[in-house]
């Protein structure tokens, strides 16, 4: 009888790493047939859109706040046109000398008429409907209540019908709404991350269940928890990368389309709502974070399951 083959070379019985293609083959790659890439893709699309929206709102609010924080409007509310004009000119003379005023301009009557056109229509008679004279001014720094009080005192003699309002005060509800939307976007990002983690956890557990027999065999052949977890982690990482790339692509398309839609509004409010390169970088981090989350979840899930075995 032929002599039985026995390896003469001493087998390395250390806990050497089990890597490469043979290790990968231990867990059949579901690729796009499994739920993981699709779950990750959907989560990444939603998270990319929510992140981009949150960042755009932050930029919009920040830009508007910076623009309006030092702004104030002086209205001369006088029905008689000549007196109104006189008070406006006198107010301009005082404001020019006011040390805390950085810049000012009288809003031309045509511009005021254009602003009121949606309500009053064209060709209205300025004498029949008295329109206040408007002066736009910008303080050095923010329009604080103290500055406004001193300005009122300075104008009270020369323009007794002047009314001064900080622009930030009448936009406060808008800022408040934007802040709410920012919190909403942040909450959406957090919730989507948690949902992604839960979905990945379930997908990893499902993959673990499908491959439990293989895991037990490798375990009984002397595979360490780290070896087995690494194989699963890489398998899930590969599936998650496929999904994350698809999700990023779709998410970016959605963000760009939405951005173009808002840009077409041609509104001063949304002009500051664009994304800078740091914002795009943050959006690009979303899929990376999703893959890292998927791999960490898979690793912990497998390690936790293995610890239940001897």
């Amino acid at each position: 009888m032929k002599k039985p083959p026995v390896i003469s070379r001493a087998i390395n019985r250390g806990l050497a790493p089990f890597r490469g293609a043979p290790a990968q083959e231990l867990v059949p790659q579901a690729r796009l047939a499994g739920p993981m890439p699709w779950v990750i893709a959907i989560m990444v699309v939603l998270t990319v859109v929510a992140t981009a929206a949150g960042l755009a709102l932050t930029n919009l609010a920040g830009g508007a706040r910076a623009e309006l924080a030092g702004g104030a409007t002086v209205q001369i509310i006088e029905a008689e046109p000549k007196e109104r004009n006189r008070q406006a000119e006198a107010a301009l003379d005082v404001l020019v000398e006011f040390p805390e005023v950085e810049g000012l301009r009288r809003v031309p009557p045509e511009e005021v008429a254009a602003l009121l056109e949606p309500w009053l229509g064209t060709g209205f008679n300025g004498e029949a409907v008295p329109i206040p004279a408007l002066i736009d001014l910008r303080f050095r720094g923010d329009a604080t209540p103290d500055k406004l009080r001193r300005l009122r005192a300075a104008l009270s003699d020369v323009a007794p019908d002047a009314r001064i309002d900080a622009q930030s005060s009448w936009l406060r509800p808008v800022f408040s709404a934007i802040a709410s939307l920012q919190w909403l976007a942040l909450a959406l990002v957090v919730l989507l991350s948690l949902t992604s983690a839960a979905a990945v956890f379930l997908a990893a557990r499902s993959a673990l269940g499908n491959n439990r027999e293989t895991i037990e065999i490798v375990h009984l052949l002397g595979g360490t928890d780290q070896q087995i977890a690494r194989v699963f982690q890489r398998s899930v990482g590969f599936d998650a990368s496929l999904g994350a790339a698809a999700g990023l692509l779709l998410g970016m398309v959605a963000v760009l389309v939405l951005g173009q839609q808002f840009a077409q509004l041609d509104s001063g409010m949304v002009a500051n709502g664009g994304l800078g390169w740091l914002d795009w970088l943050a959006v690009a981090m979303v899929p990376l974070a999703a893959v890292a989350l998927a791999m960490a979840t898979a690793r912990l899930t497998v390690l936790f399951a293995l610890r239940k075995m001897l």
Binding site: N12, P22, L26, T214, V218, L221, G222
Partner: peptide
């Protein structure tokens, strides 16, 4: 899902 060859090789691969 492993071939006969890969099944036989598995303990050696696990051992590095």
């Amino acid at each position: 899902h492993l071939s006969a060859y890969d099944n036989v090789a598995l303990p050696l691969r696990v051992a590095g």
